[in-house]
Write a protein that binds this DNA or RNA. Structure first.
Lengths: 198, 198
DNA sequence: TACGTTATCGTCACTGACTGACGTAAACAA
DNA sequence: TTGTTTACGTCAGTCAGTGACGATAACGTA
C-alpha cells in the first residue's frame, strides 16, 4: 500500500508533463501565432517527440482547454452544494460566478488563453466538446430543479443560453481590462434571468 | 449587352456545381459517415478532381453550411422590415421564426443536415464562423434597438443567447419528429424572453 | 478557319495534423 | 540478473488543404 504523494512509480519516468507542454504551447502561440506553430516545435521545446505530444493531448488545440475542463469539474461540484431555497436562475448565476474567482497571479495566463480562444478560428473550432460539457453541467442542474430530463427544452436551453451569456461576458472582459471577470459574468447572467428586459 | 438568364459565358464551362457537390456529400456522409468519407470520393462522384472540390468549398465540412449561410442573409434582410413598435425580444422571436418556415419537400434534407451537424464532432467544430454570423445579425438589431454598439454586453449577449436557444430547439426538433420546427423555436425564444421564469 | 481571350479544370509537389505498429529506454521488483 | 511496467522514439502511412503551372473548352474576332 502506498500513501498519497510521489509514490514509488514503476516504469520509465515521463520526460515532460501536460502542464509543461501547456506553458510552452501558450508561449509559442502568443509569440508566433497558432497556425504558424507546429506540434513539432512545441514537442522539441519540451525535449520530446511530436508523437509524445499526441499521447498527452489528442490535438494541437486541446492543449489550451486543459484548465477549462477543470473548471467544468468545479462547476459540477459547486452545483452539488446549492441552497434549495434559492431560485433556479439565481442559483445558476451565483454558482457560475463562484467558480470564476481567480487568483491574481493566474489572471494574466487566463487572459492570454481566452484571447487566443476568442481570436483564432482553429481554436474556436476546437471549443465544441468543451463547451458542451459545461452546458450539460448547467442543464443537469436545471433539469433537477424543474423535475424534467436534462435533455428537455427548458433545461437544454438554459444550459446553452447560460454559456452563451458567459461567453459574451468573457469576450468583453478580455477586450476591455477595466473590471473583474465576475462583474461581467454577474451582469450578463442577471440580464439573461431578466429576459433582457429594460 | 446580355439579358438575364443563362447568358453566354466565356471560358470552360464548370463540370459541376456547389449544389451537386452538396447533394453528393450529404448522401455519402449519411451513408458512410463523415470521417469515413474522403473529399476524393465526393469529387470522384461528381466527376471532378479533389482540387476542384476545394475551389468550390474551403473545407470538407463547409459543404454542409451552404444553406445555413443563406439563412443568415435572410435573417439580416428580415430584420430590416420590423415594426418599430414591437418590443425587441418579440421582434427577434417573430423574425427568427419567420425565416425558418420551410417547404415540406425541403424538410427531409434539412433534417439530415442538422442531424449530421448535431452528431458529428468534426462538423460541430466547423460551426463557429457560421454561428458567429448568425449571432451578429441578431446583435446588430439589438444594438440598434438599445442604441448601443453591437459589441456591448447586452447586444452581444442577446445575439449569442438567441442562437443558443434556437440550437436547443433545433436539436429537439431533429430528435423528436412530432411538430413543426417553428413551434420549437417559438417556445424556446419565449422562454428566453421570460428569463426562463416559471 | 485560325487565333487570342477567358474561366475552369487537372496534375503535381508539398506541408502538417494525426494514427498504428513496433521496438527501445528507464525505472522498480523479485 | 531477470522480468515487469511505463513511457518514449521511429517509421510508415492517411488525409485535409495549398500553391504553382500547364491543359481544356468554351467564346469572340479577324
Amino acid at each position: 500500500m502506498s500513501i498519497s504523494g510521489p509514490a514509488a512509480r514503476r516504469g520509465r519516468p515521463p520526460a515532460t508533463s501536460p502542464r509543461e507542454l501547456e506553458l510552452i504551447a501558450l508561449h509559442l502561440f502568443t509569440e508566433n501565432g497558432f497556425d504558424e506553430t507546429t506540434v513539432e516545435q512545441i514537442a522539441a521545446e519540451a525535449g520530446v517527440s511530436s508523437r509524445t505530444f499526441f499521447r498527452y493531448f489528442e490535438s494541437k488545440a486541446a492543449v489550451l482547454w486543459h484548465d477549462f475542463d477543470r473548471e467544468v469539474d468545479a462547476l459540477c461540484a459547486a452545483f452539488g452544494h446549492v441552497d434549495d431555497d434559492l431560485p433556479m436562475m439565481d442559483a445558476i448565476r451565483e454558482t457560475v460566478v463562484s467558480v470564476n474567482h481567480y487568483r491574481a497571479e493566474d489572471v494574466a495566463e487566463l487572459r492570454t488563453r481566452m484571447h487566443l480562444i476568442g481570436s483564432v478560428p482553429a481554436l474556436q473550432a476546437s471549443a465544441a466538446p468543451h463547451y458542451d460539457a459545461w452546458e450539460r453541467a448547467v442543464s443537469a442542474f436545471a433539469g433537477e430543479r424543474l423535475r424534467q430530463p436534462s435533455g428537455a427544452l427548458y433545461p437544454l436551453a438554459i444550459g446553452r443560453t447560460t454559456l452563451a451569456a458567459c461567453r459574451a461576458a468573457f469576450d468583453l472582459w478580455v477586450e476591455r481590462a477595466d473590471a473583474d471577470l465576475t462583474v461581467y459574468l454577474d451582469e450578463a447572467l442577471r440580464a439573461l434571468a431578466s429576459g433582457f428586459g429594460t
